[in-house]
């Protein structure tokens, strides 16, 4: 059975126990939001790491799901902490362990092995902190980009994307969009600024 823990619109569904306990734990609205952001960011992180290790789409999704479920279940332990570390900080610590754990457990014994996937998994190194940090950072950027993207008019976003991300010349893009070069500079500065604010917001 695949359990869906969706980040933004839905919280948790087909999984009532977790939902109830989780929502009880997360009475504080800020924490609820933290959890949703957490899911939105970490699911693709785990998914991508799994795909890079040669897992199929469905398996990678399952693994991401398993990590999220494991983290959700340990939310119990969080409240026991008397100093009450910030929920967000605590979450990312738990997630790190859960991910390393999940990948370690997926590495099968040679005795069971045989399929290509297994062989490939065995060749792949276990995730380390550096890879995790890198992937996390990437996803934070993407998450922020998805969030702020809608605050801008299409042309503004295009001006940013084509010049800053795709590295095209300001003049060329200005011509393509029928805008002045000055407008392209202004547009991309605005988007970049907003992107950075959003990232700070997530990581504060």
């Amino acid at each position: 059975m695949r359990v869906f823990l969706v980040g933004e619109e839905e919280t948790v569904h087909e999984f009532p126990d977790t939902r109830n306990s989780l929502l009880l734990k997360l009475r504080d609205k800020g924490d609820c939001e933290s959890w949703q952001q957490f899911v939105a960011v970490y699911r693709p992180v785990v998914y991508r790491m799994a795909r890079r290790r040669g897992m199929q789409d469905a398996d990678a999704q399952d693994l991401a799901q398993a990590v999220l479920v494991a983290v959700a279940e340990s939310v119990d332990r969080w409240e026991a902490d008397p100093r009450r570390a910030r929920f967000r900080t605590w979450l990312s610590r738990v997630a790190k362990n859960a991910i390393i754990d999940a990948f370690r457990r997926r590495r099968p014994d040679a005795a069971i092995g045989g399929t290509t996937e297994v062989a490939r998994l065995q060749q792949q190194p276990e995730p380390d902190d550096a890879e995790l940090d890198r992937e996390h950072r990437r996803e934070v950027f993407r998450w922020a980009a998805r969030q702020v993207r809608w605050e801008f008019a299409e042309e503004t976003w295009l001006a940013f994307w084509l010049t800053a991300v795709e590295g095209r010349h300001v003049k060329e893009v200005a011509g393509q969009l029928g805008k002045s070069a000055g407008a392209v500079y202004i547009a991309r500065s605005r988007v970049m600024r907003r992107l950075q604010e959003k990232i700070v917001e997530l990581e504060e």
Binding site: R137, R138, F141, R142, A145, M192, Q196
Partner: peptide
């Protein structure tokens, strides 16, 4: 943003 930030944004996105 600093040059490193612009670079990172391009790289990650």
């Amino acid at each position: 943003a600093g040059p490193a930030d612009w670079h990172e944004a391009a790289e990650l996105l």
